[in-house]
Amino acid sequence: MRKIPLKLKQLQILEQRSTLGETEEKEKEKLSRGYAGELEFDKILDAYVSGLDVYHLKDFRFKNDDARDLTKVVSGSSEVQIDNVLAAGDRIYTFEVKNFAFDLIYGSKNWHFTGGSEYKDLSMQVNRQRSSLNFLIRDGGFNYEVISHLVFVNPQQTIYNMPNLKNLIVPSNMGRRLAKICVSNRYDQSSVVDYLDSRRLVKSMYDLPANVSFEALRCGVFCYRCDSTAELERVNPYKYCCSSCTKEFTVLEVILVLIDELKTLNESWEVSPARISAFSGGAVSSSTIRRYKRDGRILL
């Protein structure tokens, strides 16, 4: 299961509990579009591999400590993130997903906007992923061919001058390409997949606390299913309701959301019944939270 990026989740919370600046708004839009594209490709890829003997690792993040890996010297970091790693047909495939809302002109090194200005070399990221994953796999004593792909999922986007390269996937050729890639492994590939999972980073070096103090936050209880900035309405002593999407929440669900938001914004913050109650704007009393804790229904 793919998790929402921490930075995006923080910005979604801050959108309801503070005022985002222009830079933060743009970052939230970029992250939201990227995450939506990853989910869309997950749906497509999952349909192709359904019932097959394959392994699909999503949002695979690892640290490559091999001193021979020159890609980390160039990037300034040994941490690598790959949207999708697929073990199929006894090969290892990677997919870097892009969900751009603008058209591009293909270039063997630098890509360009249709207006003529330079974008960047999209192949550099893919090449770094392939090289770093190759080092990681060899470091584990395995010998696999890693085949990397750059995937554009937005059907409204046009890539001009795009050559017929096997590692470039767009909506018009996605079906044909995935049909060839998504075949069952003939041999047991669980050992290499288990090894990769063992090297997965639980926490990224880029997962940092939100740049905000607790005192600067708008307190209250809000809907996490929609972008409404209106507080939830109290229907009765046991239930809240969102006036925008009509989603209903029990008191326990509200408390769990409050705890998750606090830990998401800054995992070093104290999460006590008193702080949760203050974070709710008094909508949930500290005595109610203590009772749920005492009954073992929440963990603090």
Rank of each mutant, 00 (worst) to 15 (best):
residue 3 K to N: 09
residue 6 L to E: 04
residue 15 E to N: 15
residue 16 Q to A: 06
residue 17 R to V: 04
residue 26 K to D: 12
residue 27 E to D: 12
residue 28 K to R: 14
residue 31 L to N: 01
residue 32 S to P: 08
residue 33 R to Y: 04
residue 34 G to R: 00
residue 36 A to Q: 13
residue 36 A to N: 12
residue 37 G to V: 12
residue 38 E to N: 05
residue 41 F to K: 02
residue 42 D to F: 08
residue 45 L to R: 02
residue 45 L to S: 01
residue 50 S to V: 00
residue 52 L to H: 06
residue 52 L to D: 10
residue 55 Y to C: 04
residue 55 Y to M: 04
residue 59 D to K: 05
residue 60 F to S: 00
residue 62 F to K: 03
residue 62 F to M: 08
residue 65 D to W: 11
residue 66 D to F: 11
residue 68 R to V: 02
residue 71 T to I: 03
residue 73 V to E: 11
residue 77 S to M: 06
residue 89 G to L: 13
residue 90 D to V: 03
residue 90 D to N: 15
residue 93 Y to H: 13
residue 97 V to L: 04
residue 100 F to R: 03
residue 101 A to H: 09
residue 105 I to T: 06
residue 106 Y to I: 11
residue 111 W to F: 15
residue 116 G to W: 02
residue 118 E to M: 13
residue 126 V to Q: 05
residue 126 V to Y: 03
residue 127 N to W: 15
residue 130 R to F: 03
residue 134 N to Y: 05
residue 135 F to I: 05
residue 140 G to K: 04
residue 148 S to F: 07
residue 149 H to E: 08
residue 153 V to P: 00
residue 153 V to N: 00
residue 154 N to Q: 08
residue 155 P to Q: 11
residue 159 I to V: 15
residue 161 N to W: 09
residue 164 N to F: 13
residue 164 N to W: 06
residue 164 N to Y: 11
residue 166 K to S: 12
residue 167 N to P: 02
residue 174 M to T: 00
residue 177 R to V: 14
residue 182 C to V: 03
residue 184 S to H: 09
residue 186 R to T: 07
residue 188 D to H: 07
residue 192 V to T: 10
residue 193 V to W: 05
residue 195 Y to R: 02
residue 197 D to M: 15
residue 201 L to D: 09
residue 212 V to E: 08
residue 216 A to K: 10
residue 216 A to C: 07
residue 218 R to V: 05
residue 218 R to E: 12
residue 222 F to H: 04
residue 231 E to A: 15
residue 232 L to H: 01
residue 235 V to N: 00
residue 245 C to D: 08
residue 247 K to D: 10
residue 251 V to H: 00
residue 253 E to P: 03
residue 255 I to L: 05
residue 256 L to S: 04
residue 257 V to E: 09
residue 264 T to E: 01
residue 267 E to N: 13
residue 272 S to W: 02
residue 273 P to D: 03
residue 274 A to S: 10
residue 276 I to D: 01
residue 279 F to H: 02
residue 281 G to P: 02
residue 285 S to A: 12
residue 286 S to R: 15
residue 290 R to C: 06
residue 291 R to L: 07
residue 299 L to F: 10
